[in-house]
Design a protein around this nucleic acid. Structure first.
Lengths: 249, 249
DNA sequence: CGTACGATTGAGGTCAATCAATCACAGTGG
DNA sequence: CCACTGTGATTGATTGACCTCAATCGTACG
């Protein structure tokens, strides 16, 4: 991943406009001077190693984070049960929206590989949003988009077969990579089979089996964590396929 | 339901402060004059009959709605599949947060009984929020809360048994009724078994069977759509019970 | 009273979880 | 360089939960 080549850059004020992500990041649409005000509240990018926690469940909520490079997963630990992965975060995506208005963080967020994040102290972001209607709109839009994503996820989890879940998952990732300028056909999965299973509500063995089946049907090829999509249309058809399970309505 | 006795009240300016819901509604925490400004942007309460649509999937997004009395369900129709119920809305709850920043509404929202809603044109709400930091905070908090609810729902849908889902569902409703000043032990389900099944990712027959099982185990009693909770603690224990299904992490 | 719709109950089948063994690979130390 | 070790991934066999189909029942409503 070479989205971000500089490691630590002292001149905060100009960082955002140079960032290759700024077309898909929070300050999208801000004027140049507004962008500088925005960049001024960002803490220096924080480096995380694979497995390192950005926030732990129960930490005080203080900041949003934007992924600059790498990737993270959010997981929530429920009373006496195993963790459940609830989100994967790719570059340009915002971590922590579900903590706004709460004193504590809802889940833990852990880096799945070497990762850089920009920290946005929320109270400063709020102050700035008071003066910048565009920024306010962006925050609303991001939260609303996440609400819609969660709803899609709920639909996926409730009525679809394992094959359909995996197909949707792969297509979703593919789309996100495409939007970031990477190939939508070949990409690297930074999460384990177990993470995928937890996220999709499947046993890790099922994930493995379905991937093998996709390979056998020439829909996609998996070599370790490198994924190649061979038949995008068939995957789309599978994901949207009629009746998955149960009647419902 | 007698939360709202007046049917149509012309004097918008004073409505919110008189509304019995205003302690759990969007303008929570607003000063009196701010509250008046807020009330001024509300369209007259709109009455809906059972089965009537408040918004249809694909409608232009223009307003948020607050439920004043009655209840509604949101459902999304996916390509070539049956509808899926994604939310139930009780008095004081906000409909439409997932449409912000979009031109069109994500799902349909239909009244499950005779229902009144207050309409809040979003562009006017946005203008007002510019001047009222408290209101801005309230909007963030509402959206963030909904994000957390959706995540809880995702956890519920992905790893829990039918019994656990129903228990969580009943407890969630119970809590919401309690918060509104109703009995948390006896309340009316305004949704059909089919709606519940769709919402929980279960076949309606399974809903029926599980309810019968709960009755047999003296956890709760169901007579048609009237529900009585007999053993709250056992339901909580069931809902939080260790391993539901699959390993995950 | 008949119809319609929602709810219940039963029987059978299927998908995916579980248990369990094996394999692949990277890192480590001898 | 190669055995050792641990983690992650694969594969197989079995079991159980829940969906499906189908029939029946109850209640509301014209």
């Amino acid at each position: 991943m070479s989205l971000e080549s500089t490691r630590r850059q002292p001149d905060n004020a100009t960082r955002c406009e140079r960032c290759t992500l700024h077309a898909r990041c929070l300050p999208l649409g801000l004027e140049l001077d507004a962008l500088e005000s925005f960049a001024a509240i960002i803490h220096n990018p924080r480096p995380l190693k694979r497995g390192e926690a950005l926030v732990r469940q129960g930490d005080a909520f203080e900041s949003l984070f934007v992924v600059r490079s790498g990737s993270l997963k959010q997981s929530v630990a429920q009373e006496g049960q195993r963790d459940q992965v609830t989100h994967f975060y790719l570059p340009g995506e915002i971590v922590g929206l579900d903590g706004i208005g709460e004193t504590h963080c809802y889940g833990s967020v852990v880096a799945m590989e070497s990762t850089f994040v920009c920290e946005l102290p929320f109270h400063r972001l709020e102050d700035l949003a008071e003066q910048l209607p565009e920024l306010r709109g962006q925050i609303y839009r991001c939260m609303s988009r996440e609400l819609r994503n969660d709803q899609r996820m709920m639909c996926l989890l409730s009525g679809r077969t394992a094959d359909q879940r995996l197909a949707s998952f792969m297509l979703g990732l593919s789309e996100r990579f495409r939007a970031r300028g990477y190939s939508p056909y070949r990409f690297h999965l930074s999460m384990s089979r177990s993470d995928i299973g937890s996220y999709l509500g499947l046993a890790l063995e099922t994930v493995s089996r379905v991937l093998a089946r996709f390979q056998q049907q020439s829909l996609a090829a998996v070599a370790g964590r490198d994924l190649t999509i061979h038949d995008m249309e068939a995957l789309v058809a599978l994901a949207e396929e009629g009746v998955g399970r149960h009647s419902g309505g």
